[in-house]
């Protein structure tokens, strides 16, 4: 019980800080912390496999990629027509409209959740979901989507190389 609130608190606070941070390096690191908290929540939900791949793939690979790009571009500051010293969340103009949209979203989600009505029931008793069961479902029932994702990754890989490569002809 307490663990849930600890992890949930860490996840919410770090996520808020991610979008409130000026320096993208800190944003990336705070997001890693948020992923760690989510991984803890997955353990509480008896999903150790998801918890592990959350750390291995999200925190260990995708976020390192982000960190890499931030370090390579070395452009930590947001350049807008506004004063650098005003906090990104306190700037006028489009920001206000964005905040309004965000507030609308929160209200809507809370409204939808309260309408669900039914008394919240605790989770049914169930053992740890076994990795064998996940594997079996993944390679039988979900075999086709699984193959499609492998093609997706291949396409993304080729696309990333093509996009990020310097144009050799342009330089000559």
């Amino acid at each position: 019980m307490t663990l849930f609130y600890v992890f949930a608190g860490v996840a919410v606070v770090t996520s808020l800080l991610v979008i409130a941070q000026r320096n993208p390096i800190y944003s990336v690191l705070l997001l890693v912390a948020s992923f760690g908290a989510l991984s803890g929540l997955y353990v509480l939900l008896d999903a150790p496999f998801v918890a592990a791949i959350q750390i291995i793939i999200y925190a260990g690979a995708i976020m390192v990629l982000f960190l890499f790009v931030v370090m390579l571009l070395n452009a930590p500051h947001e350049d807008t027509e506004y004063d650098e010293r005003t906090h990104p969340l306190a700037r006028p103009g489009p920001t206000r409209a964005g905040s309004l949209l965000a507030v609308a979203l929160v209200v809507e989600l809370v409204w939808a959740l309260t309408r669900a009505g039914e008394a919240p029931s605790p989770f049914p008793e169930a053992g740890l979901s076994s990795i064998a069961a996940i594997g079996r479902a993944l390679f039988t029932e979900y075999a086709f989507p699984f193959e499609v994702t492998s093609i997706l990754i291949l396409v993304a890989m080729v696309g990333a190389v093509v996009l990020a490569r310097r144009d050799e002809r342009a330089r000559k």
């Binding site: 150790p48 496999f49 592990a52 750390i55 291995i56 925190a59």
Partner: peptide, 9 residues
């Protein structure tokens, strides 16, 4: 998986 995850950190 945990050894792998932590070493990737």
């Amino acid at each position: 998986l945990i050894v792998f995850a932590i070493s990737s950190m």
